[in-house]
Simulated assay, not measured.
Amino acid sequence: MKSEEGLGFMVFSEAELIHATNNYDNSRILGKGGNGTVYKGIIKNNIPVAVKRCGLVDERQKKEFGKEMLILSQLNHKNIVKLVGCCLEVEVPILVYEFVMNGTLFELIHGNNKALQISFSTLLRIAHEAAEGLRFLHLDASPPVIHGDVKTSNILLDENYMAKVSDFGASTLAPSDKEQFVTKVQGTWGYLDPEYIQTFQLTNKSDVYSFGVILLEILTGQLPMKLEGPDKQICLSTIFLSAMKDNNLDAMLMSHVKGQESMELLRGLANLAKKCLDTCGDNRPSMKDVADELNGLRKHSMHPWVLLDVDTEAESLLEGGSTGGYEIELSGYPMGENENKPINPRSSYYEK
């Protein structure tokens, strides 16, 4: 294992990673997906890592792994998963990430550990941290990065349940004209920007739309795609926007949330989600605006007696401690390529 001059990560030999993962033993699997399998590994000095290994070798996989390595090697932010290193001795690079121990936001909202209790203010904090990570990608990364597959299963949670945005296989470096044309729509149904589906034009506002769906999951506890009858699925965003139009937000909210948080706060979060889900990308807020509004909402959650106006400066709201909490109704696991195999809610899930 060595540090390559000019690179911000380590270069591992193939033998080192075979040893670290006990020859890629099945018991070490953290997650599976279309782009490969992620294993828990132990490297020098007993440091845990997550090793992402491509299963199928083809030109698309080579390109996506290479792109992910290029993007992550240039990013350094507390709310973005860190690339520790890679192995270049194989046909498709093997990527080595920091190990993030507490699973994903998807598992926290939709998993089946009913004994787990989490305050709504904690979920709000996780959303704010994820927004800060995306804001960094859009504004401060050089060049800027469009994530392209923002979803709750790509928000990892560390030992303190701090958010770390992960999985950059669908990401792209934003060109100078801020637009990216693609020949095939990538992403996850339920989170996909309808404007992107129609135009094949990927922009940072595509990430904003997907983040709006994450806010809906936090508010409602429901999955992004819902079954409506035996053969019909409908997007949560469609149901939510219809409820907002009919002034029926209350029917969408989890029973645990109502009564624990003020309706003023919940309406503020719902209105932010609605802005993110605007069918016209130009009308959506930037990720900076989203992060700022979430910061204001968090401060209102800490001090519910403070009048809430998420469009005003966040500094007008006071600092303070959390109030209230609820038990999440957990109803399922994110599935990898083997859709019948549940993911351990205490493991990290790096690939969907």
Rank of each mutant, 00 (worst) to 15 (best):
192 L>A: 11
192 L>C: 09
193 D>K: 14
193 D>S: 08
193 D>H: 13
194 P>L: 14
195 E>R: 08
195 E>I: 06
195 E>G: 07
195 E>Q: 15
197 I>C: 09
197 I>T: 10
197 I>P: 02
200 F>V: 11
200 F>S: 14
202 L>E: 08
203 T>P: 01
203 T>H: 01
205 K>Y: 02
205 K>S: 06
206 S>K: 12
206 S>E: 01
206 S>V: 12
209 Y>P: 00
209 Y>F: 15
210 S>K: 14
211 F>K: 12
211 F>G: 00
214 I>K: 02
214 I>N: 03
214 I>Q: 01
215 L>W: 04
215 L>P: 01
217 E>T: 04
221 G>R: 00
223 L>H: 09
223 L>R: 15
224 P>V: 10
224 P>K: 03
225 M>K: 11
225 M>G: 06
225 M>Q: 14
227 L>A: 13
228 E>G: 00
230 P>K: 05
230 P>A: 05
230 P>T: 01
230 P>I: 02
231 D>M: 02
232 K>D: 04
232 K>A: 04
233 Q>Y: 11
233 Q>L: 07
234 I>F: 12
234 I>S: 05
236 L>T: 01
236 L>W: 00
237 S>I: 00
238 T>M: 09
238 T>W: 13
239 I>A: 05
239 I>L: 14
240 F>H: 02
240 F>M: 06
241 L>I: 03
241 L>S: 12
243 A>L: 09
243 A>Q: 07
247 N>L: 06
247 N>A: 11
250 D>K: 13
250 D>Y: 08
250 D>L: 12
250 D>N: 13
252 M>D: 03
252 M>K: 10
256 H>I: 00
256 H>N: 04
257 V>L: 14
257 V>T: 01
258 K>H: 05
259 G>L: 06
260 Q>E: 12
263 M>I: 05
264 E>W: 05
264 E>M: 15
264 E>V: 04
264 E>G: 11
267 R>M: 05
267 R>W: 06
268 G>F: 01
269 L>A: 07
269 L>D: 00
270 A>T: 05
271 N>F: 12
273 A>M: 12
275 K>I: 02
276 C>R: 09
277 L>Q: 02
278 D>M: 11
278 D>R: 14
278 D>C: 08
281 G>W: 05
282 D>R: 07
282 D>L: 09
283 N>E: 09
284 R>N: 10
284 R>I: 05
287 M>R: 08
288 K>S: 08
289 D>Y: 14
289 D>E: 15
290 V>H: 09
291 A>P: 05
292 D>V: 11
292 D>G: 00
293 E>H: 09
293 E>K: 15
293 E>F: 05
294 L>E: 05
294 L>T: 02
296 G>L: 02
296 G>Y: 02
298 R>T: 04
298 R>D: 01
300 H>S: 09
301 S>E: 13
301 S>N: 13
301 S>A: 12
302 M>F: 13
302 M>C: 07
305 W>T: 15
305 W>Y: 11
306 V>T: 13
306 V>M: 10
307 L>P: 08
308 L>D: 01
309 D>C: 05
309 D>E: 04
310 V>T: 02
310 V>N: 09
311 D>T: 13
311 D>S: 14
311 D>W: 10
312 T>P: 00
312 T>Y: 06
313 E>W: 06
314 A>S: 13
314 A>H: 08
315 E>Y: 09
315 E>T: 11
317 L>C: 04
318 L>M: 10
319 E>P: 11
